[in-house]
Amino acid sequence: MSHDTTPRTDDGKRAGGADKAQYGLAVVVALVGAYTIYDATTLTVGFADPVGPRVFPYVIGTVMVVLAVLLAVATARGDRPEAEEGEDVDLTTPPDWPTVLKLLAVFVLNIVFIDSLGWPVTGAVLFAGCTWALGSRTLVKDVLIGIVLSVASWYFFYVALDIPLTPGVLEGIL
């Protein structure tokens, strides 16, 4: 989908030289493959099952390891990825890690508290937190929109679809 075929890295570095992060990807792919093979060895094969549960993981794990090696070789030979472009994506600037980490933190908060506080609360925090992480500075307005969205979605699922989501601390109020 790229319209720009000039090679360049995610970090905006000049073309030329290996994309070192790709070695990291190769290592991850190799580890996943190796673990898949190891996991398959722990399975037992039944009597009336000529193929058994091991064959597929063995094949997939082995190919993953081979692909990892190929990727490492390709990287060493100067092959570089074409990072995905898009409407709102500007690849000429270095990645903005603080924003990503803030988003991840807000997301983790939602996972931790969704059962105890309930979706109407954590959903609103999720929305407002994400707008804040992405650079919006109208906190009151963002929180209000978040509350409207989360409460409305809760009622939509409850009334229209008959799926009661956890009300959490607001049990009895909603």
Partner: peptide, 15 residues
């Protein structure tokens, strides 16, 4: 994945 990717590379000049 898309939201995180865009967040890391958000275009400052709007299209």
């Amino acid at each position: 994945g898309e939201a995180l990717w865009v967040a890391a590379h958000l275009r400052t000049s709007p299209l």
